[in-house]
């Protein structure tokens, strides 16, 4: 199967680099599967998992939003943070999830920082999902 170069890049360095067959991402508009020779495309991502498929192996990467840039022979994911399942601190993510949930409860009444707490919760859940699967 034809492969293409895939990069997952963050400000703190590259998280993944390699040849893959297919990249599946969740954009703000919906899921998107990309294979080699795709038309050039740019789309924003949601807090979600990026699936990189190669030789029937699947590599997951948790991203906190960001962008995907597609070229015929290259796919780049740009995110402020991106982690491989092995790099995720499950205990920390769980604690972050609980903290965010508590804050959401409070925010409902006091109406402060609802959006930030929600984003934090999303990121924590996403990390847990990627690490668990």
């Amino acid at each position: 199967m034809k492969t293409m170069q895939a990069n997952v890049v963050t400000p703190d360095g590259s998280v993944f680099e390699g040849q893959v067959e297919m990249v599946t991402v969740k954009t703000t508009e919906g899921s998107l599967g990309i294979m080699a020779n795709h038309l050039p495309l740019v789309a924003p991502l949601t807090v979600s998992a990026v699936r990189l498929k190669m030789d029937s192996k699947i590599q997951l990467v948790a991203v906190s939003g960001g962008f995907i840039e597609v070229r015929p022979d290259e796919v780049s994911v740009l995110a402020e943070s991106a982690e491989l399942p092995s790099d995720i601190d499950i205990a920390r993510a769980r604690a972050a999830k609980e903290r965010a949930e508590r804050r959401l409860e409070r925010a409902k009444q006091e109406n402060l920082d609802f959006k930030r707490a929600e984003m934090a919760l999303k990121r924590a859940i996403n990390r847990l999902e990627v690490a668990g699967g």
């Binding site: 954009t27 703000t28 508009e29 998107l32 038309l39 050039p40 495309l41 740019v42 789309a43 924003p44 962008f67 840039e69 070229r71 740009l78 402020e80």
Partner: peptide, 20 residues
């Protein structure tokens, strides 16, 4: 020179991308 497809549209992308 590549003609990108912008999903959903360039304006939204620019709005998100520029602060980054």
């Amino acid at each position: 020179n590549l003609e990108y497809i912008y999903e959903p549209d360039p304006k939204v992308i620019l709005e998100q991308l520029l602060p980054h």
